[in-house]
Design a protein around this nucleic acid. Structure first.
Length: 318
DNA sequence: AACTTACGCAACCGCGACAAG
DNA sequence: GCTTGTCGCGGTTGCGTAAGT
């Protein structure tokens, strides 16, 4: 039963991804779509294990990802959902389509857990499992199962989310800017502010965000002088992306200024992206959430609305 | 200015579930 | 129904950077 680790093969590279690897992976996924990760290393020549490729894609390269600067709204959602669902970060992440489960997990571990429990012990990281959430932890966290679990938890989740939004409303009545910031890279991401993503049509959001990601990557690399490492992680680095296109980038014809060059990169439209939310206007999305949450406030559980959001929520996840 | 400590994030690891044969 | 392969998730670690002394 003990299966050897998938990555213990000779010649499998570990550690931070290099710009070249990122571009190869993006290029591959662009062409073939995400999935069949097993084949990625062999077909791309990447000396990475399939897991690493998948992780890199889902946590970093995937278009539509917003990084850093969690808003109050997101924070509250995370807190409430964590209380309800426990450390099922993937499930929680499905409510925050622009955030990765890893990001949420990190944010929880580094900010929220401390914040909520004042350095208190045993909650969250270990505590999430230790202190049983309202929804009992199932042994499985697989997609299908947590989806079913979510279905059963949905009532509680709705209540909690509504509370979260309601309490937030008291502080800040969801102005457009806030809504945009709620999920919008527009508000707090220098990258987007410089690239004008917020001005793009909603349908192009995914596209723009994806190119932004690349832009960020490229800029990060440029700043590090092409040094391998976590350069792309440098937040808000895209403002100088233009004019700093590393030589490697040209090899892949992505251009160094991905964001500004977006229209010239039609091949970068990730049609196969499984999270339609990236192409959904943030405001619309939040409005949907809100209407769904408040649908039964007055005792009316509009099936249509609830259903639609539930469907949408499920769509986000898959 | 140099050194130390704390923090944040990206990536790795191990396990379980699902699907195909 | 069983075995094997692949995928996805959550926990944890290690490195780079910021903050403090």
């Amino acid at each position: 039963m003990v299966r050897p680790p998938c990555c213990d093969k000779e010649g499998i590279k570990k550690g931070p991804w290099t710009p070249e690897e990122d571009l190869v992976l993006v290029s591959y996924v662009q062409e073939h779509g995400p999935g069949n990760w097993r084949a990625v290393p062999t077909r791309t020549g990447l000396m990475r294990c399939s897991k690493s490729c998948r992780l890199r894609w889902t946590n970093y390269l995937r278009p539509g990802i917003k990084r850093g600067n969690f808003t109050d709204q997101e924070e509250k959602l995370i807190v409430h959902l964590q209380a309800l669902l426990g450390n099922r970060w993937a499930a929680i992440a499905s409510y925050l389509p622009e955030r990765t489960d890893n990001d949420i997990k990190n944010y929880w571990n580094t900010h929220l857990r401390r914040k909520l429990h004042g350095g208190g012990e045993g909650e969250g990281g270990g505590g999430g499992a230790a202190s049983k959430p309202a929804a009992q932890r199932t042994a499985s966290s697989s997609k299908g199962q947590w989806e079913r679990q979510l279905q059963t938890d949905i009532g509680m989740a709705r209540r909690a989310l509504r509370e979260a939004l309601t309490s937030l409303d008291a502080v800040k009545p969801l102005p457009d800017a806030a809504v945009g910031a709620g999920s919008g890279a527009a508000a707090d991401s220098p990258a987007s502010s410089s690239s004008g993503a917020s001005q793009c049509s909603p349908s192009a959001a995914g596209y723009v965000l994806s190119t932004e990601n690349i832009s960020r990557m490229l800029d990060g690399w440029a700043r590090k002088g092409g040094r391998a490492g976590t350069g792309p992680a440098t937040p808000g680095a895209a403002e100088s992306a233009s004019g700093s296109s590393p030589s490697e980038a040209s090899e892949f014809s992505y251009g160094g200024t991905a964001a500004s060059a977006a229209p010239a990169l039609p091949s970068f439209v990730f049609d196969y992206e499984t999270k339609p939310s990236v192409a959904t206007p943030d405001q619309t999305q939040l409005s949907a959430i809100e209407s769904w949450l408040f649908a039964d406030v007055d005792g009316i559980d509009h099936h249509g609305q609830g259903g639609s959001f539930l469907d949408a929520a499920m769509d986000y996840a898959f």
